[in-house]
């Protein structure tokens, strides 16, 4: 049994959601990843830290199926991403992965509700069903009252909550967060951290890339430090919240 970030226990035999084995990634002559091995079990919250340019965002892109390794294998939910074409990767992301970004990446021309519903509608869910589920999520995240507001009129924290709701829309096995508090003021950042902790507490697997030690220690149960494209160190974290 292992400790989770909040002190609860997680079975050691929980299935692996993410399995990276000998992953290399080169951009021309530059090595972004240099033989990375990483495994994340279901329900785990893992933070990846490291200096700028160390390869942590590239690592996240590999797991999300946004980029392909030069060599090595990336398996998510038991699926080898190397065997998927662009279409297959899109379907994989749709079914298995939710992503939140530093700059939210909401569509400016759609109100909060439709931004969230969009992810489900791409799978063929009807507009009515998608909006109902989106409203539930916005409600759970405390921004239901802002459902008809367009991104330009939302605060940073509200935008990130809407982005989280969108990421959770298709009930992904894995939630990926790239500097989720990087563009937020401290109060909004705290709120987003609480939200991630809550999600992990109800079993959501998290992979967070961040520069912020506070975010890593508060939200993650394990810290992976990356340097020069390699996993330099891994350690379990004590719960701090």
């Amino acid at each position: 049994m292992s400790n989770d970030h909040d002190g609860t226990t997680r079975p050691d035999d929980a299935p692996f959601v993410v399995e990276l084995s000998g992953v290399h990634k080169e951009f021309g002559d530059a090595k972004a990843l240099d033989g990375v091995d990483l495994r994340i079990r279901a329900g785990e919250a893992v933070a990846v830290m490291g200096p700028s340019g160390c390869g942590k965002s590239t690592l996240l892109n590999m797991v999300a199926g946004l980029d392909r390794p030069s060599s090595g294998t990336v398996r998510v939910q038991g699926q080898d991403l190397g065997g998927l074409n662009e279409n297959g990767l899109a379907l994989f992301r749709r079914r298995n992965v939710g992503m939140i970004f530093q700059f939210f990446n909401l569509i400016d021309d759609l109100p909060a509700l439709d931004n969230v519903a969009l992810a489900a509608q791409l799978t063929g869910t009807t507009a009515r069903q998608a909006r109902r589920r989106a409203l539930e999520l916005l409600d759970e995240l405390g921004v239901a009252h802002r459902k008809d507001v367009y991104p330009a009129a939302l605060s940073g924290g509200e935008r990130q909550r809407v982005a989280v709701a969108r990421a959770l829309m298709n009930r992904p096995a894995l939630l990926l967060a790239d500097e989720p508090t990087g563009a937020l003021d401290s109060r909004s950042g705290e709120q987003v951290m609480d939200l991630l902790i809550d999600l992990n507490q109800i079993g959501q697997t998290l992979l967070i890339v961040t520069h912020d030690p506070n975010l890593a220690t508060r939200c993650a149960s394990r810290l992976v430090e990356v340097a020069d494209g390699k996993v330099a160190r891994e350690r379990m974290l004590e719960a701090s919240s």
């Binding site: 909401l106 400016d108 021309d109 759609l110 109100p111 439709d114 519903a117 969009l118 509608q121 791409l122 063929g124 009807t126 507009a127 009515r128 909006r131 367009y150 991104p151 330009a152 935008r159």
Partner: peptide
């Protein structure tokens, strides 16, 4: 880089509620 105020909003909103495939309704809007 900053979010733009949305444009053509009513049409896009209406389209997002139709039964059209979402890729099509997004394109139409």
């Amino acid at each position: 880089s900053a979010p733009r105020a949305g444009r053509g909003l009513k049409v896009q909103r209406w389209l997002s509620g139709t039964r059209l495939p979402r890729a099509v309704s997004l394109g139409l809007g």
